[in-house]
Structures are given as structure tokens and as C-alpha cells.
């Protein structure tokens, strides 16, 4: 498992615990009302479970197992950027309901999350290819073409 995958998967597990905590707080309040503020965790619950848990896990495992170019995993920096952007977006999305300028912060969070997904897709796109060594490197950048030859 590459180092970046360790980061992705550990983050996704942490978001799962956080999302389950938010969900459990809301659900307990639905059962026996004790803290109306728990509803403010609702949007964070959705963000953290769908993007933090499921999406980061898929991205991390995809980074690990998609076909490589020799020893390299293609546009690796974009995958790192995707990781940082998603975490930035999620932290903002979690904080937004508790801070002033909530709507602006939500917009920034959505921008970070969308940019993360865009960066990850840009990273993964050329790696979606047959596992066998391919001689067609026309869709790759100069650097990647070199990596392909070094295989």
C-alpha cells in the first residue's frame, strides 16, 4: 500500500467515525429530544459520510490498484492535491454551520470538494487502461511517456 493510500484510507476511517458520531447524536435526539443543536450537524453528517468516508476510501484504493506506468502512478502530485483539497473542503463544511458567513464558507467548501474530485479524475484518467504494457503513450505528458519507456 503506497504512502498516499495510507493517508487516504486512514482519513476515510476517521471521517467514518466522525460521521457516525454526528449521525448517532442526531438520531438520539430524534428518539429522546435533548439537544436541538444536533440538527446543525445534519449537513456535516452527509458530507463526512459520502465524501469523507466513501469517496476518500475509493480514491485511496484506486490510487493503489489502478494500472501503473512502470513504478510510477502517473500524475501523482494531482492525487496529493486531491487529498489536501478534499480535507480542506470537508473541514470548512464541518465548521461552516458554527461560524459567521456560513453561506460563503459553504460555497468555499463545495469549491474545495469539487476541485478535489477534478484533480483526482485528472490523475486517474490515463491509468484507466488495460493492465498489459501499452505502447500507445500519445495521451500522456512528456514526463509520463518517459516513465512508460523506463518500465
Amino acid at each position: 500500500m503506497p504512502k498516499l493510500t495510507v493517508w487516504y484510507v486512514k482519513a476515510s476511517l476517521a471521517y467514518l467515525v466522525l460521521g457516525a458520531t454526528f449521525g448517532a447524536l442526531i438520531l438520539s435526539h430524534k428518539g429522546v429530544p435533548w439537544a436541538p443543536w444536533t440538527w446543525r450537524l445534519f449537513s456535516s453528517h452527509m458530507d463526512v459520510t459520502l465524501l469523507g468516508w466513501v469517496t476518500l476510501l475509493i480514491m485511496g484504493i484506486a490510487y493503489w490498484i489502478l494500472p501503473r506506468f512502470g513504478v510510477r502512478r502517473g500524475r501523482e502530485r494531482w492525487a496529493w492535491a486531491a487529498f489536501l483539497l478534499m480535507n480542506g473542503g470537508l473541514v470548512l463544511a464541518i465548521a461552516a454551520p458554527w461560524l459567521p458567513h456560513t453561506r460563503v464558507l459553504f460555497l468555499l467548501a463545495r469549491l474545495g470538494e469539487a476541485a478535489s474530485v477534478g484533480a483526482f479524475v485528472f490523475h486517474a484518467w490515463p491509468r484507466v487502461k488495460p493492465l498489459m504494457v501499452s505502447t500507445d503513450t500519445s495521451s500522456l505528458s512528456g514526463g509520463q511517456r518517459k516513465m512508460g519507456r523506463n518500465r
Binding site: 457516525a20 458520531t21 449521525g23 448517532a24 447524536l25 438520531l27 438520539s28 430524534k30 428518539g31 429522546v32
Partner: peptide, 10 residues
């Protein structure tokens, strides 16, 4: 029961 369910899932 809902509180118990939340605890179990958590």
C-alpha cells in the same frame, strides 16, 4: 429504542 440503535451503530 432509537437511542439504543444510535449507540449500537456507533
Amino acid at each position: 429504542v432509537l437511542v439504543l440503535s444510535a449507540l449500537l451503530q456507533w
